[in-house]
């Protein structure tokens, strides 16, 4: 088995670039000849791991008990029985890999569910890879991802640095223009609204120490954008 896997992953076919082209698309629309790789959206757990990793929040500890990341308040009141309370981990366990997320029987964490983690009601050989508005809502609004954006913003020098940390490539000029426009707009918004700055930077259990708080809030918005990109959640 090991040898088979080795042969597969060391093959030229496996190493094909996922860069598609109109020519390839036309000559071999279903990729029967494997002249290219296809983009694979990351599975639920890895989407979380990726955000934690690029933001520097990840706690790489291995093994141990399950952990409890932020979860919408009141979610557990809909468990049938017995009554359970969900107490978020307010320590470094908050930043463990998605793999360790507490799994209450078939009642899984809503962000995992949105990204097609199975409810374990039946054996699942291949996970779905859907694309739904619910996924957008998770990446936009789940405090785990907002906090990761805040940390990514705090860790990075500027938006170029942020982009490279998340996508391991330099942005194109057109991409920079979009991000700079967003940054400028957010800067003026937060400069005029100290309360909003405090609220956004207050997401998550980790505080940030920054002199230019409104600047950090604006960068956090840009980081949220970057964590929401298709390229960020897809293995190309």
């Amino acid at each position: 088995m090991k040898q088979l896997v080795r042969t597969i992953v060391l093959s030229d076919s496996y190493a094909q670039s996922s860069q598609n082209s109109p020519e390839l698309e036309e000559r071999d629309p279903y990729n029967r000849l494997l002249a290219r790789q296809r983009g694979i959206r990351l599975p639920a757990e890895l989407i979380r791991d990726n955000a934690l990793t690029v933001s520097g929040l990840l706690n790489p500890e291995i093994g141990g008990r399950s952990v409890k990341p932020y979860q919408p308040a009141g979610y557990y009141q809909h468990l049938n029985f017995p009554r359970r309370k969900y107490a978020e981990d307010l320590n470094e366990n908050q930043y463990r890999r998605g793999l360790y997320t507490h799994w209450q029987r078939t009642f899984l964490h809503p962000s995992m569910k949105a990204f097609d983690a199975p409810a374990r009601e039946e054996c699942t050989m291949v996970r779905e890879s859907s694309s739904t508005p619910l996924q957008a809502l998770v990446l936009l609004n789940d405090p785990s991802f907002v906090e990761a954006a805040k940390a990514l913003a705090a860790e990075s020098e500027d938006i170029l640095d942020m982009f490279e940390r998340a996508l391991t490539r330099r942005p194109t000029a057109a991409e920079v223009a979009v991000l700079e426009e967003l940054l400028a707009s957010e800067e003026s918004r937060f400069a005029a609204d100290a309360e909003a700055v405090g609220q956004l930077l207050g997401v998550g259990m980790k505080g940030v120490s920054a002199d230019q708080r409104s600047q950090l809030a604006a960068k956090t918005s840009v980081a949220r954008g970057i964590l929401n990109l298709q390229e960020t959640i897809t293995r190309y």
């Binding site: 809503p110 619910l134 998770v138 936009l140 609004n141 609204d193 207050g202 997401v203």
Partner: peptide, 8 residues
């Protein structure tokens, strides 16, 4: 879930 914007 997550239908509300983050605070701020």
């Amino acid at each position: 879930h997550y239908v509300a914007n983050p605070p701020g």
